[in-house]
Nucleic acid binder design. Sequence first.
DNA 1: ACATTAAGTGATT
DNA 2: AATCACTTAATGT
Length: 214
Amino acid sequence: MALVSKSIEEKVVNNFKGILEPKLIEEVIEHGRLHHAREGNIMIDYGQYMKELPLVLNGTIKILRKDQEGNELFLYYLNGGDSCAMSMTCCVGDKKSEIRAVAEDDSEIWMLPIRYMDEWMKYKTWQAFVFNSYNARFEELLNTIDSIAFLRMDERLWKYLLDKKQASASYIITKTHQDIARELNTSRVVISRLLKQLERDEKIELYRNRIEVL
DNA sequence: ACATTAAGTGATT
DNA sequence: AATCACTTAATGT
């Protein structure tokens, strides 16, 4: 236990020091377990009950929801140091998940049994963490809503590329036009055309299965 | 060499 | 912005 978990503990500490008080971090380490998600793994699915609260250590988790017609709609990304506000509500209210969480890259997640959600409210830093998680997600959601409601597709696409670049900390995005089209709920042809235009504007470079943001 | 899949494009709505 | 119909390019077998 000692040798193997040492580095894992360090990861937890690194992600949450300054956010959670030392005493609480000890508890977080003691009661959680490491979950290693491979790229493409569905971690939480629609209608599933939440029994653990995920704290993302590294990697990127993509949060999606399904609309009436069954189209998948991208909501936001979770990165290291983030938690999922949706699962916080679900835990407290014993509700089913409204969202699907998919690992965008290989990711490490620290899973905490939900019963500690309540117990740890005695920690001021935990209260703040929960509150801030809500706030951050809420703001991201507003941004996403704005972009759907008010931005034209070319702006949405550009924003998507920048988001994606940010989330993966890389200029290279390995996705097909079809993949992107699905996430933005449009057709591949439209994405191809807009990407071509972005390339003409020298904002990106296009290759097969790969886009480089300049 | 051939098949399959990704991407590019004009025309139409 | 969506769809169709078709072409071209890249990749796998």
